[in-house]
Amino acid sequence: MGPLFPQGLISEPLNLLIAFIIGIGFGIGLEAAGFTNTRKLAGVFYGYDFVVLKVFFTAAMTAAIGLFLMDAYGLIDIKLTFYPHTYWIPTAIAGVIMGLGFLIGGFCPGTSVCAATTGKIDAMMFVVGVFIGIFFYAFTYEPLFETLRGTGKMGQVDIAEWIGISDGLFIFIVTVIAVASFVIVDKIQKKVNSKGKIKDIEELGL
């Protein structure tokens, strides 16, 4: 029963090999969806290309449905994974910082790795920026961030339990919202692009 590695059911070298193979699938998905094209990524904020929203929600909900189905039938125990701890204050502040970073830099760390290694020069600069940012954070951690990072501590919180409904019902609701948003963003995208103001639209593969 999963997760296998934390319970010592597979060896560490095998775990790292699996990590590499999983990474290949992740990389193919990101590149093939167009996530190395910074204009496609930014499109989600301006309404001309919603590929980010479609890929992102499909991936998250596929995984959530799959994992909780496996949990229900005893194939995995989600509570044994490295379940994220919630510190809502630093996460909310950092999220806004990253949102701003997304609009200025045009990538997030995962997509920038794909883009930089497939020849996108702007992504290489972005990667340099991420390293600068982490160095800055690391060397100013004690005076600036250490206290803030520990605020808003709530433990390992499951959002469905927190609201007071079952995991299955919560995932069902989010899936319905996601599917509704897929239909709506297609309409928005058509409307925005029919105004015909997007330059070099063929580059976006729309």
């Binding site: 992102f56 991936a59 998250a60 909900m61 995984a63 959530a64 994220p84 701890h85 510190y87 630093p90 996460t91 502040i93 950092a94 999220g95 910082i97 990253m98 701003l100 970073g101 997304f102 609009l103 200025i104 830099g105 045009g106 990538f107 997030c108 760390p109 995962g110 920038s112 702007d122 992504a123 600069m125 972005f126 990667v127 340099v128 920026g129 991420v130 390293f131 600068i132 940012g133 982490i134 160095f135 800055f136 954070y137 690391a138 961030f145 803030l148 990072r149 989010v174």
Partner: peptide
């Protein structure tokens, strides 16, 4: 791009992850 990267570098450390590790894996 450099400035955006810097913001991500700081944000991902403060927020315990980025769009992949924090949001997608969390969801």
């Amino acid at each position: 791009a450099v400035f955006g990267g810097i913001l991500w570098g700081i944000g991902s450390q403060l927020g315990r992850g980025c769009t992949s590790g924090l949001v997608m894996s969390g969801m």
